[in-house]
């Protein structure tokens, strides 16, 4: 069984598409009590539920959404760090799920992830220098001189003092770990980078340097990025397109300035309107939100318990109809929204 998201998307896929994600699904099973693993009482979390998108060469797709909505899971699925429940991932024309070990290794040299967790990719028993050295030489045989030159170059690019080369990860500050993590990914010279909160733990000035660096490298080397972040302003700045996720689904996708300034999905609207002119977050919006409960099943549109449009329209039954969960459909040029009553 194979579903296409919308015919238009297929049309858009051209030879320069580097990543194509089709109907991707990942369900996690969580115990609902201390001993429930024995009783087989489990509840299902559809962390990624039928997600499709594509990414072209030299393009950046921003991925945003509430904490826990499935962003990191999407990233890990693409790299095949976890196995999908269903769906297809095509990287550079190769179906990721059919790759043999040796092929997977080759693909991983072209596709790298900056992990949200600061410690994730840093071996605690290796010095910064060795972490970088390993990343530089893992897919390439280089002589001592070239490796050292490259290490110096990387340290400069992420504005780290060379005196930190002898430190173990435990001896670094949060932002220094973050920058070693970024340097490690750049060292491999990938074509696609999945950047999961790459600017967390960085002050605004170093954040600016990192963003500038990513943009420069994209310009020079034609890199593609899947840019996951809670910093909506950086997302708007760096992305060509933005996908907004809500509880495992993409609810809106389109050009970055459209998403930021003319959103159509009520959730996107809540997200971006919480940023005011000065970049300060207002409190009024988010406050009426209730804690979400996976235990209670939602019928129809997943967003309806929190949707202002739903309330304003007097609880229309389309929104709660279990047979009629809104599908991502094209509403304008490359603009997709999953809502029965999109904002215009």
């Amino acid at each position: 069984m194979r579903h296409r998201l919308a015919p238009a998307i297929t049309v858009y896929i051209m030879s320069d598409t580097i990543l194509d994600v089709v109907n991707l699904k990942k369900y996690f099973y969580h115990s609902t009590g201390l001993f429930s693993s024995l009783k087989k009482e489990k509840s299902v979390i559809p962390a990624v539920d039928d997600v499709s998108f594509y990414l072209k060469e030299k393009e950046t797709l921003g991925l945003v959404g509430e904490s826990g909505c499935g962003k990191t899971t999407v990233g890990k699925l693409i790299l095949r760090l976890i196995e999908p429940t269903d769906g297809k991932i095509v990287f550079n024309g190769m179906d990721m799920r059919n790759l043999r070990k040796s092929e997977l290794r080759k693909v991983r040299s072209q596709m790298q992830m900056i992990f949200q967790d600061l410690d994730a990719a840093l071996n605690p028993r290796m010095k910064v220098k060795d972490i970088l050295k390993e990343a530089i030489t893992v897919y390439e045989d280089l002589d001592y001189y070239t490796v050292n030159k490259r290490i110096t170059e990387l340290m400069n690019q992420v504005n780290l003092k060379k005196s930190k080369l002898g430190n173990y990860p435990d001896e670094l500050s949060g932002g220094e770990k973050r920058r070693v993590g970024i340097a490690r990914v750049l060292a491999v010279k990938p074509r696609l980078i999945i950047a999961d909160e790459p600017t967390s733990a960085l002050d605004v000035s170093i954040q600016a340097q990192v963003i500038n660096l990513l943009r420069d490298l994209q310009e020079e080397l034609g890199l593609s990025y899947l840019f996951i972040s809670h910093d909506l302003r950086l997302v708007e700045l760096i992305s060509d397109k933005v996908a907004v996720m809500y509880m495992g689904r993409i609810v809106e996708m389109g050009l970055s300035d459209r998403i930021a300034h003319k959103p159509m999905h009520p959730y996107t609207n809540v997200l971006w309107s919480s940023l005011t002119e000065g970049g300060e977050k207002t409190i009024s919006r988010g406050l009426s939100w209730q804690v979400f409960d996976f235990g209670q099943s939602v019928t129809g549109c997943r967003f309806h318990p929190r949707c202002e449009v739903f309330k304003a329209r007097g609880n229309p039954k389309e929104c709660t109809d279990p047979q009629n969960e809104p599908k991502l459909t094209e509403t304008g040029t490359s603009h997709y929204v999953a809502c029965h009553f999109p904002l215009l």
Binding site: L232, L271, W289
Partner: peptide, 18 residues
Amino acid sequence: ADEPTTGLDVTIQTKIIE
């Protein structure tokens, strides 16, 4: 609190601050 809100989206962040 050392960077208590970095990994949080605006809506949840707002509530934590509240």
